[in-house]
């Protein structure tokens, strides 16, 4: 009688270990609150959306937040405004650009769909301080390089080993007077798949000749 219950407790403890491990590994796959899930509910692929800091509900009285709860992310830096878009590389590489340059610090990151940071860059590391990234699989970047697309262009090729992910572009607002300029800069951010097929075919012809 006692032996059976001790055995049951032992089996339970072993089972607890397995459940513990299973839960920890399952959460990134099933969480509906991951950055990917949230961004999915905010917009389609290639749609640029805004991200805001998760706020204290009590402060909304003095400063009513204009954004919806889904746009608010945890531990976001309130000194920044952030734009983001999800991409998928099934139809070719994706190009992320913004119009012109801005004096404020900006940085961009590329994440895989589980939130792992794959690539990041800031304004000083970018060519001429311009936001222009061409993100693709190794083969796609190879094809882009074979075209004239990257010649005389500030575009930075970024090779990733995933087929979908998301990009963030952050702009610092160190003085309130800079908010309007930073805001319009972020509004000019585009995130679009580029069609390399015709030119890729042309480079194929070149190789034949």
């Amino acid at each position: 009688m006692m032996g059976r219950f001790i055995l049951a407790i032992l089996i339970g403890l072993v089972g607890a270990g397995l459940v513990h491990i299973a839960v920890v590994f399952m959460i990134p796959r099933v969480s509906d609150n991951s950055a990917w899930s949230r961004l999915s509910s905010l917009g389609e692929y290639f749609q640029v959306v805004r991200i805001a800091p998760l706020r204290d509900s009590s402060s909304s009285a003095s400063e009513p937040p204009s954004e919806t709860p889904r746009e608010r992310f945890a531990f976001a830096d309130p000194a920044f405004i952030v734009a983001s878009c999800r991409f998928e590389l099934g139809d070719g590489p994706v190009e992320i650009t913004a119009n012109g340059t801005i004096d404020n610090f900006w940085s961009a990151s590329i994440y895989d769909s589980q939130g792992g940071n794959i690539y990041s860059i800031n304004d000083r590391a970018a060519i001429d301080g311009i936001v222009n990234l061409v993100v693709g699989t190794p083969q796609q970047i190879e094809e882009v390089r074979a075209t004239t697309l990257l010649e005389d262009s500030p575009a930075l090729p970024v090779i990733v080993d995933v087929l979908r992910g998301y990009v963030t572009v952050r702009v610092l607002i160190d003085e309130e007077s800079k908010r309007a300029a930073a805001d319009s800069f972020l509004r000019s951010v585009t995130c679009l798949p580029i069609d390399i097929r015709p030119t890729a075919a042309a480079s194929g012809v070149e190789r034949d000749s």
Binding site: V23, V24, F25, I27, P28, S31, N33, S34, A35, S37, R38, I51, L54, F73, A74, F75, A76, V82, S84, S107, A108, S109, I110, Y111, Q114, G115, G116, N117, Y119, S120, I121, N122, A125, T168, R170
Partner: peptide
Amino acid sequence: PYAKARLAKLAQLTLGGGE
């Protein structure tokens, strides 16, 4: 794995090394 699970629960956008 714990940090990954935590990240997925929080909807946090971590800074990359270049940021």
